[in-house]
């Protein structure tokens, strides 16, 4: 059995994400500051070449670019071997959304829960851009919704370069989360405020699920 230490590396167009104080110029012409990036990763799984599958139990992780140590996930007790695929969900599945009060990263005090219309916010991206004709030029994306037709949980599958888990050893895996890939799919002048389960939220969830790649 070994341990896999996964580090999420938030980026914007390949540059490290620095919240609040750094202006980023996106390829689509938008310039923006990012003030908040928080999202759930759940149901983490590894698949090995020999067919071995490792699934983490109670697998829910709140990733927060603004909190030290909250971009780190340790998967423990993984059978030794070579793994070639990493699967995870961005967001929380529908069962989690209808199961009442949960603890840990799913505790409603973590600020990722809608009170007035039950359900988890799967992804929060907030920031400012002069392209936004809004109060303080703010853009706010709270992506959530678990009911058809506007579910926002997304499955992601990443190929790994022969990831070796050794006995009593810790292996490192760095996953880039590049927000440039998200922002380049939209124009902030048109799309800057999505805070309800909707067709638009589902579309943005599609975009967001495409920001991950092994570093």
């Amino acid at each position: 059995m070994g341990t896999l230490r996964i580090t999420l590396v938030p980026l914007v167009d390949g540059k490290p994400l620095i919240l609040e104080n750094r202006l980023y110029h996106i390829q689509n012409g938008d310039s923006l500051y990012v003030d908040m990036l928080r999202f759930y990763l759940s149901t983490l799984r590894l698949k090995g070449k020999n067919g071995v599958v490792f699934s983490e139990k109670d697998s829910y992780h709140l990733i927060d670019a603004g909190e030290d140590g909250n971009c780190l996930i340790a998967l423990e007790n993984i059978p030794i071997g070579v793994y070639d695929t990493f699967f995870f969900n961005v967001g929380t599945d529908s069962l989690t959304n209808v199961s009442g009060a949960m603890g840990g990263d799913l505790d409603p005090t973590r600020g990722m829960y809608w009170a007035w219309n039950t359900g988890y916010v799967n992804v929060k991206i907030e920031g400012r851009s002069n392209a936004c004709n809004t109060l303080h030029h703010a853009f706010t994306f709270h992506l959530g919704g678990y009911m058809p037709p506007h579910q926002t949980v997304r499955k992601v599958e990443l190929p790994l370069q022969n990831l070796r888990i050794g006995e009593n050893a810790t292996t490192d895996l760095r996953i880039a989360a590049d927000l440039g890939r998200f922002f380049s799919r939209l124009q902030l002048a048109q799309t800057n405020s999505v805070m309800l389960p909707s067709k638009q939220a589902a579309q943005l969830a599609d975009y967001f699920s495409g920001i991950f790649s092994p570093e």
Partner: peptide
């Protein structure tokens, strides 16, 4: 019917500005 589970119902009055105007945190 916006709330789907009894456990989560108190979040609405606690966080509503017109009711308790508080945060769970």
């Amino acid at each position: 019917g916006g709330v789907n589970h009894l456990d989560m119902q108190p979040l609405s009055p606690i966080t509503s500005a017109a009711e308790m105007d508080e945060t769970m945190e």
